[in-house]
Design a binder for these strands. Structure first.
Lengths: 230, 230
DNA sequence: AAACAAAGTTCCATAATAATTATAAATTTG
DNA sequence: CAAATTTATAATTATTATGGAACTTTGTTT
């Protein structure tokens, strides 16, 4: 019978790239580490996988322990296993990214972090471990994914304007979009529900509010979809 | 100082989804396992990661040990870490896929496999471990990737016809393409070199042979590319 | 030499997308 | 109430993509 002790065993962690959107810019949640190694340095929230825990469950646990948030979109970025990526020994990490509504975030009093911050993407230099590489890989994945799947709504509040959505796309994809064409295209997909409500307290004509229509999206999926914004 | 022994340690393997293309159909290389567990069953080629080995290096080693092939396109599919995926204990695997020219393949007399076979994609049921899931994830990745990056050429011989290329795309994407439009589009990219040679020994007008032009592709990349076949 | 087969190209009408011009509507601010 | 600002939509033009039909080319097969 195979004896696993004959083979290399490695420490296994998960790290989370948690994206948020603060009305105009894509941000990532960084924590200040409270433990060795890289104590007091900025890093992605992450921790060791438990004995009987599946990988995504571990990532969800870290997300919940850091942000208090559950039931959100989570996707694997990939694994990072450079033999010298962790100063204490061989530790392989599996990275996930998630998209949350920044307003739902409330730092949890947990062992993982006491200080957390929403950082602009140009501030992910000099993170602990190989976390910069992990962030870059996650950003790349997000950019690809958001073109063909309606994941971006996770970053917005439940009710949002079409301009909110457009700025979100422009910010993530780093492009400018034409307002009229963007509206035409996104409305034609039929995955938004136009609400009765409008914006309030703005110094101009208030915009209609919309919500994401999960049901219609699933119908679209079922009928051999193609969801290409742009 | 952090002591890794306080945390779970897992066995770490790599598994390879090696794609080949036999003129008309996409295939994946399966081996008949010679070791417990799942002895004598069909599986993906894979093995434990070595002590000082990076993940992709391990995947490249498995590829070379199985097929004799080096220097090919390899991409990470993701990690699979269900706690009960391996009957001997906690083993996490990192899956990679690669694209090779089926004619370059020669089964190596190695410990990994004595029997290997190019299997159609409808024959990936009932593989060892969670290898069916891994195959499905790899196929999905390949489908996405091939739309925007010129990776498909790895599956073809160095000299190929436009019809070869079209059938390759049709086979991977599971769609029909219009001959004229496909040609127009692919030639406009300027990433193919038209050779002086033509096909031989065919019972009809022989087709021009082409090769992939890496240099031009890199120029295209540099100038903010968009390589969208279809 | 005629038949066959697939390569490779051209013409063209239609359909689908994208970009531009133009106008109007709703709200706050001075 | 006029100015400012942004939402919102209609209509038009320009551009690109799709695909039918037919034709020429370069070979092999019978």
């Amino acid at each position: 019978m195979l004896d696993l002790n004959n083979y290399l065993k490695v420490g296994l962690t998960v790290d989370n790239v948690i994206f948020g959107f603060d009305e105009s810019e894509l941000k990532v949640l960084l924590i200040k580490r409270t433990e060795e190694p890289y104590e007091d340095q900025w890093a992605l929230p992450g921790y060791f996988v438990a004995h009987n825990e599946d990988l995504m469950d571990a990532a969800k646990r870290v997300l919940a322990e850091t942000t208090g948030i559950e039931n959100v979109y989570l996707e694997q970025v990939g694994s990072f296993g450079n033999p010298i990526r962790h100063p204490s020994g061989r530790v392989v990490t599996v990275a996930y990214y998630s998209l949350i509504n920044i307003k739902d975030f409330k730092l949890q009093a947990s062992s993982i972090a006491e200080i957390a911050e929403w950082a602009s993407l140009n501030r992910i230099k000099n993170l602990a471990f190989d976390h910069e590489d992990i962030c870059l890989a996650a950003i790349k994945k997000l950019k690809n994914k958001i073109r063909t799947e309606p994941i971006g709504f996770g970053l917005l509040p439940p009710k949002f304007t079409l301009t909110n959505l457009q700025i979100l796309y422009e910010s993530i994809l780093e492009i400018k979009l034409d307002k009229r064409n963007f509206r035409k295209k996104i409305l034609k997909k039929n995955i938004l529900t136009e609400l009765e409500e409008s914006q309030k307290d703005v110094a101009h004509r208030p915009a209609k509010l919309y919500s994401f229509n999960q049901e219609n999206y699933e119908k679209l999926l079922a009928s051999g979809y193609s969801l290409d914004i742009l």
